[in-house]
Amino acid sequence: MQITMKGNPIVLLGKKVEVGDPAPHFTVVGQDISEVKCHQFMGKKRLISVVPSIDTGVCEQQTRRFNEEASKIADAVILTISMDLPFAQARWCGAAGIDKIQVLSDHRDASFGNAYGVLIEGLRLLTRAIFVIDANDKVTYVEYVPEVTDHPDYEKALEALKSV
């Protein structure tokens, strides 16, 4: 599948994740600058919402939508991951009232971007994508949004999370 940004083709680095794959390992940074490792979420079903920059229109709407839905889904963790600096994420989340999901930064070494095949070559941004992972650490849903500036399929992603 070809991914575009404003109609222009982009190249993604890393290995594309497929349904049925074991969830790739990654280390990201929390808003308090602490290291957050994927194994911290083992045993829980989770939705990972990937956005290029939290402080832009579609990314903001995507993050707000999953924050609103988070309390409606039992035993699930929702993560939003971007390359934004943790300080900028904390400022934005505080102003936007984002308090039901974890917003994490991949800025340090692009561990998540490379592991999930979402790092945009040459831009140091992540492409828009959604991943659902079950409690056994298996990928059960994947959406690489074909046009980075478009919204993901929220309903399909949420249904995938609820059905795990």
Rank of each mutant, 00 (worst) to 15 (best):
R128L: 12
N114H: 13
D55W: 01
K162C: 06
G113P: 02
F87G: 11
G14N: 03
I73Y: 05
T140G: 09
Y144H: 09
K100F: 06
A157C: 11
N8Q: 15
L79H: 09
G7D: 08
D153R: 10
F26R: 01
A74L: 08
R91W: 10
D32V: 01
H39L: 06
Q31N: 10
L47W: 02
A74S: 15
I101M: 06
A160K: 04
K16L: 10
D32H: 02
E121R: 13
V58F: 07
D55E: 15
T63E: 05
I48P: 00
G94Y: 09
P146C: 11
A90G: 08
S105D: 05
D55L: 10
T63P: 03
G20C: 12
I10L: 03
E69F: 01
Y154R: 09
Q2E: 14
N67Q: 05
P24R: 10
D153C: 07
L47C: 09
S163A: 15
V103N: 05
K37L: 03
Q89W: 06
I98Y: 05
E121D: 15
E147S: 10
V19L: 06
A115L: 02
K156E: 14
I3M: 09
Q89T: 11
V103W: 03
L13F: 06
L161M: 11
L158M: 14
E68W: 00
P86M: 10
I98L: 12
F112H: 03
K16N: 13
I98S: 04
M1L: 13
Q61E: 15
V145A: 07
A115V: 03
P152Y: 05
I33C: 05
I48C: 06
Q102H: 13
C59L: 04
A88W: 12
T4L: 07
L161R: 06
I3E: 00
Q102V: 00
G94C: 08
A88P: 10
M1G: 14
N136W: 11
T140A: 05
T27H: 04
L125K: 09
L126C: 13
L119W: 00
S49R: 02
D84P: 13
E18I: 07
G94E: 15
L125V: 10
A90P: 07
K6N: 13
S53A: 15
E121N: 12
K44I: 01
G94R: 13
E60T: 15
P9E: 03
E159L: 13
D84I: 03
A129R: 08
T56R: 09
F87A: 14
R65W: 08
A160T: 05
L13C: 03
T140Y: 06
Q61G: 13
V28R: 00
S163G: 10
G97N: 09
P9T: 01
Q2V: 14
D75F: 02
A135R: 15
D75R: 12
N8S: 11
A88T: 15
D75P: 04
V145Q: 08
W92N: 02
T80M: 12
G7H: 04
L85D: 14
T27P: 00
D32Q: 02
K72W: 01
